[in-house]
Amino acid sequence: MTIDFLVAALMTIITASTPLVFAAVGEIVAERSGVLNLGVEGMMIVGAIGAFATGIITGDPVLAVLAGAASGALMAFIFGCLTLWLLSNQVATGLALTIFGIGLSALLGHQFVGVTLAGLPRLDIPGITDLPFIGPLLFGHDALVYLSVVSVIAVAWFLRHTRAGLALRAVGENHDAAHSIGYPVILIRLLAVLFGGAMAGLGGACLSLAYTPLWIENMTAGRGWIALALVVFASWRPWRAFFGAYLFGGITIIQLHAQGLGVAIPSQILSMLPYIATIVVLVLISRDDVRMRFNAPACLGRSFHATG
């Protein structure tokens, strides 16, 4: 009984954390290349509706997931064109992307309100998934959960151990130097931004395909912003972002269970917890000014224009 409850709680924590893992790891890649994209919330919500609409129309979960990633990347492309080519302010453009994305998703999702989707199929290996405790926790998730873990491993390895990853970090640390030794700064940044968008779109797809398989206006509810906070919390490192995402997923689910168990605190006050936790964590991590400046990519948020 208690074991079943524990497994159920841990399973929901994993489902709640996966969107944050995707969005945060994607944003880490973009920010490591020196681009601050504050439009994660907008890319996520457009990814959510893109995936959901495709899922309803085609009935194919693979296509739905791909559509989620593509919608996020498309949004990121708008951001990339504006900030990289037209040199617009990255903070303002990111805000615009979020405002636009929330409006666009509501417009596209208008006809899907109240429709439900079957949800993503879960892995089910006879004999193994049925193992007590370990079985469902390790072998009982949908494909996106496994993909999120793979993406953390892949991004961590890419940034640390590949030549391309080194080039990306060089562009993020000093774009003038990177340019002068021949790296295509704008192209590298565009690719990083597109990757970040696709990952945010996948995060949105998790929400509308797995977490709550239906379309609700504004269903991301600030998760994109929490993902941005996670990037800072993780000092721009993928594995730390992964654990941070699970910490936040855990807080979200624990407050939901507390509401369900009838704790004498009003539900709205409990629902504030993830947002307040984000603020507290940000304060703790950014208190040390020197460490923050040491960890943040040096060219984060600065436009690059090659003269000559």
Binding site: I78, L82, A92, A96, F100, I102, G103, L104, L107
Partner: peptide, 15 residues
């Protein structure tokens, strides 16, 4: 929701 799309587009074009 058209209003939100409108406002977002305006800011994009402005930037």
């Amino acid at each position: 929701a058209v209003t939100g799309v409108f406002q977002g587009m305006l800011l994009f074009f402005l930037l």
